[in-house]
Simulated assay, not measured.
Amino acid sequence: MILTSSEMQWVSDRMKVYDIKYQEIYYEILDHIITAIELKRTGGDTREIAIVFQDVVDTDFWGYAGIESLALQQEKIYRKYVGSKSSKMLRSNLLDWRIWLITVVLSALAYQLPNNRFTHIVFLSAIFLLAFTPLVYSYALTSRNVKTIKKKRSLLKAHVISHTYLPAMLLNSIIYLPTFFTGLADGDNGFKLMAHWPMPALMVVLMFFTVLNYSFISLCRQMLRKA
């Protein structure tokens, strides 16, 4: 038996007391509770909606703590799923022999490029763009396509965007890690050190971030298609 509009509203309002921060999980649990209540109504349970609701919560979810625990478990499952998809995509692209072949050829050709300030600026600008584009792209795409209800966050948006931070974090490491080995204390010197790398080395880094860029943008698109 389908619940009345007033009963549906009561259930929706009652669900606000639970700490479920992601709307996808919220809707999944809400749908399960409504379905369970409707089954009880069909079976002849005519008790007040508040009583039937609590009966379902206690029976199916082991009470208030059970619902919040389930929400956390669902978040962990989704985070693991996104992580698995991300890792699989990265491995597939980074271990592609064609990428390695192109990288070797382009690195060899990079010896012929003029080793001057302008060329370095072009390469470094391209690397920066490739490193930060996935983050900006995923934020813009998910913001446009994923709408959230009041006081709820999007599970997809939060965890997909968190993965697109990786290229920027890796670039930051490439820039600043050398300072630990050269004894340079000034962070700007780490960037200046990278600015003087030989062209073949910059080409390898450029190709690496090209693969990362493609992988994480593809991840974002794929996750949105499945949403």
Rank of each mutant, 00 (worst) to 15 (best):
T103Q: 07
M89N: 05
K80Y: 05
M15F: 14
G66W: 12
F61T: 10
T42C: 03
E28D: 15
I121S: 11
L124S: 03
F118D: 10
A36V: 04
I77M: 10
Y139H: 10
V104Q: 07
N93P: 00
S86Q: 09
L109C: 09
H32Q: 11
V11M: 03
Q73D: 14
V17D: 09
Y18N: 07
D60E: 12
P134M: 06
I99V: 15
V52T: 15
M15A: 07
A131E: 11
K88R: 02
I25F: 06
V56Y: 11
I33C: 00
I127D: 05
A50I: 07
K21W: 10
R47M: 04
F128E: 06
N93H: 08
K80H: 09
A50K: 02
L124K: 01
V122P: 07
R14S: 13
W62I: 08
K85T: 05
A108M: 14
Q73G: 01
L90M: 14
Y81D: 12
V82P: 02
I99P: 00
Q54H: 13
G83M: 06
D55R: 01
S92V: 02
L113Y: 03
L109R: 10
M15C: 04
Q23P: 02
R14Q: 14
D31T: 13
D19R: 11
D31Q: 09
L72K: 13
K80Q: 13
I127M: 07
T103C: 03
R79G: 05
W100T: 10
E38K: 03
S84A: 12
K40F: 11
E48P: 01
K21D: 14
S12D: 12
K88C: 03
Y22P: 00
G66N: 08
D58P: 01
G43A: 15
K40P: 01
V56M: 06
R117T: 13
D55W: 01
Y139I: 12
D13V: 04
A50R: 11
E24I: 00
A108C: 06
V52M: 13
A36S: 15
A126M: 12
N116E: 12
K80L: 05
N93G: 02
I99H: 09
T133C: 05
P134I: 02
R14M: 08
D58G: 03
L124N: 00
A50G: 04
R41S: 06
R41F: 04
W62L: 12
I33P: 00
T42M: 14
M89E: 04
L30D: 10
L70K: 14
L95G: 01
K40N: 13
A71C: 09
E48K: 00
D13I: 04
I77W: 10
Y26H: 15
L129Q: 07
N116K: 10
R41Q: 10
A36E: 15
F132T: 11
G63Q: 11
N116M: 11
K85W: 06
H32G: 01
S84R: 14
Q112M: 11
P114S: 08
Q112S: 10
D58F: 07
W97S: 13
T35C: 04
F53H: 02
G63P: 05
D19W: 10
S86E: 09
T142W: 09
L90T: 08
L113C: 01
S125Q: 07
M15L: 15
K88Y: 07
A108I: 15
A71R: 02
K76V: 02
Y18I: 09
K16N: 09
N115G: 05
D55P: 00
D55T: 01
L70H: 06
Y22F: 15
